[in-house]
Simulated assay, not measured.
Amino acid sequence: MTGPRGPIVNVPNLITTVRTVVAVWLGVLAIVGDSAVLTAAAIGCYWVGDILDGLVARLLGQETRVGAVYDIVCDRVCCLVVVAALILQLPSMGVPLGIFLAQFVLVDLLLSLSFLRWPVLSPNYFHLVHPQVYRYNWSPAAKALNTGGLVVLVAAAPSPVYPVVFALTIAAMKIVSIVVVARLPLALTVPGVRTAVS
């Protein structure tokens, strides 16, 4: 089977599938068993798998637009279950986690899929379209901070105040990024590519 710029059935997509199934299963077990250990395992599986599928895709030359969309959707599936488990473990952090969930599953999903407007393989190449939007959303540091930062704050902060401020700040940045991206011309020239993809 083939999709845009490559096969649909490949090693990175298999890793995405496995990490999603395992992370969701661990997350469900964490919710049913009210287990902090299983919650941590689900988060770890989600994060490690998310790093691994992208790394393998680049190393094997198996990056595809279909794979990028699949990865983005699977991230949201994992996130929904993991955040539900976290809220069960840390009910006092329900507000910041709820803000993050709405931002990640709705706002960030729209922003992440916006790469499809241009002929780039994934958000990882959005620096070819808009360097600043890429820097604040998909650079390695931004990706680590945008999700990992909240989890660390939720686990370490004595009250939900700091996590709420952090979650609202990230949400505001994502909204501003959507506005910026929406104003970019579709015919934007991307180095090495002649025509834009609608």
Rank of each mutant, 00 (worst) to 15 (best):
L168V: 09
V152L: 15
F126G: 02
V164P: 01
T147P: 00
A156L: 15
A157C: 13
S139H: 05
A144H: 03
V164M: 10
P140S: 14
V133F: 11
V133H: 07
L186V: 10
R183P: 00
L186F: 11
A156I: 13
A155M: 15
K143I: 01
H127L: 11
P140C: 14
A144L: 15
M173K: 11
G149D: 14
V180T: 13
Y162R: 08
I175W: 07
V154A: 13
L150V: 05
L153N: 06
A156M: 15
T169G: 11
A182Y: 12
P163F: 01
W138H: 06
P158C: 10
K174V: 00
S177H: 11
V152P: 01
L184G: 02
L184K: 03
K143V: 05
L186I: 09
V176I: 10
P163D: 00
A141G: 09
V179Y: 10
F126Y: 05
P131D: 03
H127E: 15
P123W: 00
I170Q: 08
N137K: 01
S159K: 09
P185C: 12
L150D: 04
A187I: 04
M173W: 04
W138M: 12
V154H: 06
V152W: 13
H127R: 12
L186D: 10
V154S: 09
A171L: 15
S122G: 10
Y162S: 03
Y162K: 09
K143M: 09
V180W: 12
A171Q: 03
T147D: 08
L128I: 00
S177K: 05
L145T: 08
V152E: 12
S159P: 06
A142K: 02
S122R: 00
A172I: 02
T169L: 03
N146L: 12
